[in-house]
Every structure is written in C-alpha cells, then in structure tokens.
C-alpha cells in the first residue's frame, strides 16, 4: 500500500509536469497562459500550506504576509526600472523628493532576489521559533497570524507614500530591459515559473519523505512524545514554517510579474484565508494536489465571477464547507481512495 501510494504520488507529479510544461503552452493562448501563471503563483503558497498545515499541523492564516513580502520586493524592483531616472509615480504624488533609503537597494536585481528569499525566511523562522518555543499552537497560532496579516495590510495602506497605499504598486514596463508584456516574455516567464514550481514540488516531496518529514508528522500527531524523545520540536516546526514562508514569497514575486500589480487586497486577511482553501481543495496531504487546487479554484473563480458574479461567493463559501465536511483530503484524497479501492 505504502509503496503503491508513493508511486502514485510520483505519477501525479510527472503528470503535472507534462501538463504544465507541454499541454498548457500548446493548448492555451497567451491570455490564458498568463492567467494560469497567475493562479500557479498561488500554487507555491498552497504547497507551503500542505507542508505546514497538512504535515506539520500548523495552520497559518497569514501566508499572505510572506506572499506580499516577495511580491512587493519584486514590484519595487520593477517599479524602479519602469520609472527610469524619476521617482516612482505614487511617491511623486505624495510629495516625496528623494528615494527612501530602504527602496534604493531594490534597484539591483541580485539584492532583490536575495531579499525575496532571505527576508521572509528569516522573519518566518525567528517569529515562529519564538512563538513555538512558548508552545503557542493550534487555534491561537492561527489567530496570531491572522492579526499579523491585518497589521501588515494596515501598514501597507497607511504608508501610502512608500507602498502605493490601497492601489498597491503597478504600471510596470520592463524586466532587465525586456518588455514583460511581449509574447515571448509571456512564455519565458511562464516556463521559469513552472520549472521553479516543479522544483519546489519535488523538494517538498523529498522533505516529506525524509527522516525530517517523519519527525514533522510525529510532531503533528503527538508533539509531547517527540519533545520527550529529545527533539527540539520548536526548531523543527519553525523550519517547516520557514519553508512555507519561502515558497509563499516566491509565489508572490511571480504573482507580481504575472498580474502586473501587487496590492494590499492580494495579501490581506481574506486572501490569506483563501490560500488555505487552495491547499484544502487539492488535498492538504498532497503536493501535486496543492497545484491542482490552486488551478481549479483560480479558473473556477475566473469563470464564475465573469459569468455569474452573484454565485461566486456562495460557491466559494460552499467549497470551504464542503472540503472540511465531505472531503477532508481534497480532490487528491478522492482520487487516492478511488485508485486504492480497485485493488
């Protein structure tokens, strides 16, 4: 059974790779490919949620913060490039005369990329280690992260002259000199994203199957016992949480370039909670499921909110209820049960 499940998981990953690398670019036009890229940026977050929530038992309702850190970091770089020798437009409107010191480093692509990786990872590790050390977990952790997500958006909206406020940062033109809206760029950005996504997916699968993964599952199920056995459970949980944050940040950066904007709405409380549903729909224990969930919910939202705008929220609400009542392991759980029952 266990062996079979492992093969199935590998099969699902391979199918995913084929669909994303070959089928999508062949079948979808530029517009839909860009849309798929936008929804896949949430797949990064969803994979992180599978790790932290599904395997680690840590429900964070603040993944939007890390998504936002990555997204805003790249947005700052793109905005500086788009503005040329001028200050970004929203700064001029707010009457700012010189580039703020903490913006300036983001004119360098290497620093920006390093920031996308290091800032969320460091923040996530330090914050969650301190919190887990205090043995705050479960519902309280969820509420604390929710409060942080709220704080983050309040800060973004409030510091309008530095963050673009409610409207966020938008109107990008080029990335390292290449027009980001050209046909070739659409494909280049898409492929970069998919390669990275598959890398993240395979890395996560490897982590889950490693010794570390076993310890994480053990912590989820019986933290006390693992602690008594001599493990530093807080550090292990913090590491998993850091991975989740790192993935979210990478996803956020891709969202910025795919959607052409980043704003407080995208990273706020509501969308942080929606990110959890992506993972839940696909299956909280399945890495390929997380990608599937992000795509399915994304395209459903696109279809329903364009054609039946009144139904979308009813549908999303029902989806939340459905996944926790009827299919706790999501779409992949259904598939799993179906395949294993045919033996």
């Amino acid at each position: 059974m266990k062996i079979k499940r492992e093969y199935m998981e590998l099969g699902a990953l391979a199918t995913l790779a084929l669909v994303l690398l070959v089928a999508f670019p062949l079948l979808l036009g530029g517009f839909y490919l860009n849309l798929a890229g936008k929804y896949l940026s949430f797949a990064f977050v969803a994979i992180g949620i599978v790790l932290t929530w599904g395997y680690g038992g840590i429900l964070s309702l603040g993944q939007g913060i890390f998504f936002g850190l990555g997204g805003y970091a790249l947005a700052m770089f793109l905005k500086i490039e788009a503005s040329g020798s001028n200050l970004p437009d929203f700064m001029i409107w707010s009457g700012i005369k010189v580039m703020p010191a903490w913006w300036a480093p983001f004119s360098n692509i290497y620093i920006t990329l390093a920031a996308i990786v290091l800032i969320p990872a460091t923040m996530a590790f330090v914050f969650s280690y301190l919190v887990f050390k205090k043995r705050v977990s479960g519902v309280y952790f969820a509420i604390v992260t929710l409060a942080l997500a709220l704080t983050f958006t309040v800060l973004l909206v409030g510091q309008q002259s530095y963050t673009g406020g409610e409207n966020g940062i938008t109107n990008f033109t080029t990335f390292l000199g290449y027009d980001i809206y050209s046909h070739a760029s659409t494909y280049a950005i898409y492929y970069t994203e998919i390669v990275l996504l598959l890398f993240v997916a395979m890395g996560s699968t490897a982590v889950i199957r490693s010794r570390l993964g076993n310890v994480v599952i053990a912590i989820r199920d019986r933290e006390d016992r693992v602690r008594f056995s001599g493990y530093n459970t807080a550090a292990i949980k913090a590491f998993i949480f850091m991975l989740g944050a790192l993935f979210a940040s990478i996803g956020g950066a891709f969202f910025t370039i795919q959607a052409g904007l980043i704003s407080p709405t995208v990273v706020g409380v509501t969308s942080s909670i929606e990110m959890v549903v992506y993972a839940a729909v696909g299956g909280r224990l399945s890495v390929p499921g997380a990608v599937l969930g992000a795509l399915v919910v994304g395209f459903l939202q696109f279809y329903l909110s364009n054609n039946f705008p009144h139904i979308w929220l009813f549908f999303l609400g029902a989806l939340f209820i459905l996944v926790v009542t009827a299919m706790p392991n999501g779409l992949m759980g259904l598939l799993d049960r179906f395949a294993l029952s045919r033996e």
Binding site: V276, V277, G317, F320, V323, V324
Partner: peptide
C-alpha cells in the same frame, strides 16, 4: 474554515 465559508 467552515465558518469562514459560512461567512462568505
């Protein structure tokens, strides 16, 4: 999660 769905 379920009550969040309910709120929507």
């Amino acid at each position: 999660l379920a009550t969040w769905g309910l709120s929507l």
